[in-house]
Simulated scan of single mutants.
Amino acid sequence: MLKLAHTAQLSAGELSAARTLLEGAFKDFDLAGWENTLGGMHALVFEADDLVGHSSLVQRRLLHGDRVLNTGYVEGVAVHAGHRRRGIASALMAEVEALLGGYEVGALSASTAGRPLYEGRGWQQWRGPTSALTPSGIQRTEDDDGAVYVFPGRAPLDLDGELTADWRAGDVW
């Protein structure tokens, strides 16, 4: 069963199960990572009463050229190890992608393992430099170069240009 709901509509048990799933999927998943998945829409896949897949879409602002882009940012895409290769990740992405029409662009940071999924769904790798708008100004995020993907929407994009993320705790991308 697939469920689409805002963070505020999820029960404490569903939120706890989602956090546990994400902590199991990502070795470095921490409180800041968890908080970055909240405040938007979540797609959840259950098998019986067990949560086996999660993704969320949160609002962010990205700077590109002379524009501030209203961005739907995908967070926390994970499928329980025992349920992978069954189309669950594709179903999760289809749900969040359907919501991207409300944004100028979609964006996400992809793990090496996740890149084939995103590329197969039409996400495009950002080839240009990435940065973050930090409290001390714009700082390059070289470690994230090549890992950022965008889903073009209404805004024109130069994939070789600079892309700057708004500031937040934890991983900026």
Rank of each mutant, 00 (worst) to 15 (best):
G114A: 12
L69F: 05
D171N: 06
L57C: 09
G53S: 04
E35F: 02
D145M: 14
D143L: 13
G153A: 08
Q125N: 01
A81T: 11
L63H: 06
D49P: 01
R140S: 15
E95C: 06
V150F: 03
Y149V: 01
K3M: 11
T130C: 14
T141M: 13
R84W: 08
R115T: 08
W126Y: 07
E35P: 00
D143I: 11
E95D: 08
L163W: 05
V77S: 01
G120C: 15
H54D: 09
L21W: 13
G13S: 14
G72N: 07
N36M: 08
V148H: 03
Y118G: 13
G39K: 02
L4C: 06
V45P: 01
T112Q: 15
P152L: 09
R168M: 05
E47Q: 13
L44N: 05
T112R: 14
G40N: 02
L51A: 06
R168S: 03
A81N: 04
A132F: 13
G122A: 09
L15C: 13
M93E: 06
H54R: 05
G40A: 00
P116F: 11
W123K: 12
D171V: 07
A113P: 06
L133V: 14
G33M: 10
L22I: 10
A113G: 10
W34N: 05
G72S: 03
V74T: 02
D144I: 13
A98Q: 07
A32Y: 14
V79H: 11
M1H: 07
G87S: 01
D50F: 01
T164P: 02
R60F: 08
R85K: 05
S111V: 06
V58R: 04
G24S: 07
S56T: 10
Q124K: 07
G65P: 14
E162T: 07
Q124F: 08
